[in-house]
Write a protein that binds this DNA or RNA. Sequence first.
DNA 1: TTTGAAACTCATGCGGC
DNA 2: GCCGCATGAGTTTCAAA
Lengths: 164, 164
Amino acid sequence: MELDALDRALLRELQNDARQTNRELAARTGVAPSTSLERVRLLRERGVITGYHAALDLDVAGRPVQALISVRVRPPARPVIEGFREWAARLPEVIGLFVTSGPHDFLIHVAVPDVDGVYAFVIDRLTERREIADVQTTMVYEHVRSPRIEPAAPDRPRTARRSR
Amino acid sequence: MELDALDRALLRELQNDARQTNRELAARTGVAPSTSLERVRLLRERGVITGYHAALDLDVAGRPVQALISVRVRPPARPVIEGFREWAARLPEVIGLFVTSGPHDFLIHVAVPDVDGVYAFVIDRLTERREIADVQTTMVYEHVRSPRIEPAAPDRPRTARRSR
DNA sequence: TTTGAAACTCATGCGGC
DNA sequence: GCCGCATGAGTTTCAAA
């Protein structure tokens, strides 16, 4: 599973704009269109690229208010954790969900039309669930997503010396 | 800025697969290709769709370990907040960043090759910054992103009665 | 593996509805 | 506003290097 310079360049380009034509992609990465086409096909096949997704503007889409809801469930056992995760991930307010270590078990990222929506989510939606032991709300003033995630550098071939 | 049923269907489809052909899109949404093409063009022009992005598998890309780093900066004034945000968002380990209310000012989502990478991020990277007053690390066991974000329902036209 | 060209599919703009 | 068709652009395949 090695990614060479061309794979990295293609990943950078496709994270930036997944709908550019294969010709543009080829021109930007300095190869023939048939080469970039084949490489991108392999990246998908190997599972490096999991999909292509349109990004929405939450403000324009009428959901400008974001919050992070910390939730502790009881008991913190697998069926409880997984059950809650599946339920929460399907709620329309939820745009992301972390299962975490620490005093809470979940951090739920919600986007709603207004501050009332946050309150309603917490006191209407979450209270449906009996396994919830604690809830704590944090408002999100701003959410920045990294526009380019780079694959980790592959392990260097090891020589006899541990370091130099 | 109203989004009708067709707009919503197109957004759903394009969030699911942004690279399907316009013909598929038209077939799935039950309109002619020229119609879906024009609607999608308008959705982009109006800023509802902000872009199309390839999604990477972090495990396959060699960055299977995720953490959330809470950071408090001092003083919590605009130039300090913005300066830190710009700096942090550019670090290669960072895949997302929240500016938040509450006891901390930032929640930084990082993805690294191993647990050492989390520790190195905290004690090597973050210590470069003098404005940091407090740091707290939470490990991420799992991160789920919602596959479909729906636009908020538009406000109902108001009648004289408040409710029925 | 990469390439260039051939065959085919698709996007795109416009006139009619 | 939506559709269907014509045209040009883009994708995809494959034999050769």
